[in-house]
Design a protein around this nucleic acid. Structure first.
Lengths: 340, 340
DNA sequence: TTTCAACACGCAAACGTTTTCGGACGTTGG
DNA sequence: CCAACGTCCGAAAACGTTTGCGTGTTGAAA
């Protein structure tokens, strides 16, 4: 077992000073050609690589960005991570991933931990619990200390920072309008409770789309699901007494649960009921029938977030502070669960 | 914007030395009660937290573990990450995630980067390209430098380190035996090319199960798929000319593709053909019919890997070196795609 | 021969900690 | 009255870098 090589060891070995070694390796003109060659050869031979931690300490930057998400076993979030990773890597940054598990405490804990020197900045999507508590002091604190933060997907006005979101309302409208265009007359929605911001917004898009097309908005056709565990049963009950011919689900899960329930009730998709989902994940692509859905382009969101963050990190200190929020467009992917 | 507080600043502010502050905050008996109180109060008031980077440099350990996986938009890997994260967090470690995108070069790059001080050890699953090249010098190098490494899922004998795998052969046998028990007479397999170790092993399990039950092994019923992009078509072609009544797919994707193809050919699952998959992901759970499948228990694998790694990290230096490989049992999850 | 660049290199500080050692001071005991 | 000891604290080194500046040596110009 050969431990890592340091400048000091090279210096001792070659009988020069540490600074000479450092400068030689950086090809400084201060050092004589032959000395440089000797040192470089030695370093290459023994595969010297500078210690990142020491560099971080010296430079006061770590070249790593932290990303905190509510859960990782989740298609959308993985695509976002993928996007972040890609551009971070291009720019020479590492990505350190933490999970809040939708818990406020874990979010605070992770943030605190990473804020103490481990990361140069954060990309994060708020935990459900955090949004319920409406307590964002941990974020404002970190931002106050001069750490750039980019919020994505689950964002909140109270925190002043860059943001990356999708046009949830417009996305939902696209979905509902597609249902309308393909001839649906009675359109229901499967959504979440209102404190989940995206659920709320998508519901709003649903309502707006109906109103703009002079469809009546029937509260009885709106199902707000709180308990994800029992969503399947709840959806089944709901559909049993609603003779909708179009259905907008705010996520994949709800969409496939609905299709399953409908089929058990002898109703076919899309012949009797058209269904549109949200999030273009594995399920949407592979389900039978494959799902017409609103794609969120998670990878692009991640990439945008990473760009925003890195821009802030590499900004000259004299530039003026300003917060952007970029909106990544959604697009409707037409497949087999709706008519056309 | 208030920058981070350091020991030095506290010292200056309270007119004591840096070492006094450090000791006071660690409740050292060397420091007088009143001084301690004063310092602690100040530190708490201004929310002092020690700088992790400085600590890492001093202690020569970072308390973070690196995990390098081929891809992240993949159910199995996310469950593994989730497992790693969980126990890492319990033990006070951070997790930094890197993606190799199945590329050898990226794997080497990431490993090199993280090996230079950023991480105390690695958990990784080999890139497909790496397994093709059979070049593992980057790993042996890192291991030689004294960094613990734990390989999982896609492992390889040439690298000497701890490993976490599943009993792919036994898992596959469980699947095939279940098909046999439920009355299938002619069982095919949809698998990958042999250099993907798990594919190879699962194929072997398939063959062994057949042999042990005195079923003939018919090469014509074995489809080895190279190109994941066109798997759907390939599977369709294959099934068109095989009148199997049982099918074992080595992943979810192949399983649902098969079911789709069969249905288009007028064959019902499970009435005409029973199908068993591998990996208990979103697809298996939500597909209609839901998939009977072999669960890999990714979370448990991740947890095991993390435990192995942390044990090595916190081992006293005089303990003897030894490499374990733990096998996480698979289990068959019976659902609707097979008879019972 | 003296003077002065130019060159090649080393010293030391800094980043923020922890920890060992020793020093100053006051108290106690003989 | 002095030695010994205890209490409380500070100086300094160390982790591995980078970098401004100082210094010694050389060679050439004056």
């Amino acid at each position: 077992m050969r431990p890592k090589l340091t400048l000091k060891q090279i210096a001792r070995e070659l009988d020069v000073s540490i600074s000479t070694v450092s400068k030689a390796l950086k090809d400084s003109p201060e050092i004589g050609e032959d000395t440089k060659q000797k040192i470089k050869a030695f370093a290459k031979l023994y595969n010297y690589k500078p210690n990142n931690i020491a560099l971080s300490l010296k430079n006061r930057k770590t070249k790593t960005i932290g990303i905190i998400i509510p859960e990782i076993v989740h298609y959308f979030f993985t695509t976002v991570i993928s996007g972040v990773e890609q551009v971070a890597n291009e720019k020479g940054y590492n990505v350190i991933v933490c999970l809040s598990n939708n818990s406020f405490d874990r979010e605070v804990l992770n943030l605190d931990l990473l804020a103490n020197g481990s990361t140069d900045g954060f990309i994060l999507s708020l935990a459900k619990e955090t949004m319920q508590k409406e307590d964002y002091h941990h974020l404002t604190e970190v931002i106050n200390q001069g750490m750039p933060v980019v919020l994505f997907d689950r964002v909140v006005d109270e925190v002043h920072c860059d943001k990356v979101i999708i046009d949830d309302i417009i996305g939902a409208k696209k979905a509902v309008e597609h249902l309308i265009e393909t001839g649906c007359k009675k359109i229901g929605i499967l959504t979440t409770v209102d404190y989940v911001s995206v659920g709320k917004l998508r519901t709003r898009g649903y309502i707006e789309a109906l109103e703009e097309n002079d469809y009546p908005v029937d509260e009885d056709l709106i199902l707000k699901i709180e308990d994800m565990e029992n969503s399947e049963k709840e959806i089944g009950e709901f559909l049993k007494t609603r003779d909708v011919d179009g259905l907008f689900a705010v996520n994949e899960q709800f969409a496939v649960s609905a299709i399953g329930a409908l089929r058990r009730q002898g109703r076919n998709v899309p012949e009797d009921v058209s269904v549109v989902g949200f999030t273009d994940g594995e399920l949407s692509k592979n389900f039978i029938p494959s799902l017409t859905t609103v794609s969120q382009h998670g990878t692009r969101m991640g990439a945008e977030a990473a760009h925003l963050l890195i821009d802030k990190l590499e900004r000259k200190p004299d530039e003026v502070e300003s917060y952007k929020t970029v909106i990544v467009e959604t697009s409707l992917v037409r497949r087999e669960s709706t008519k056309n």
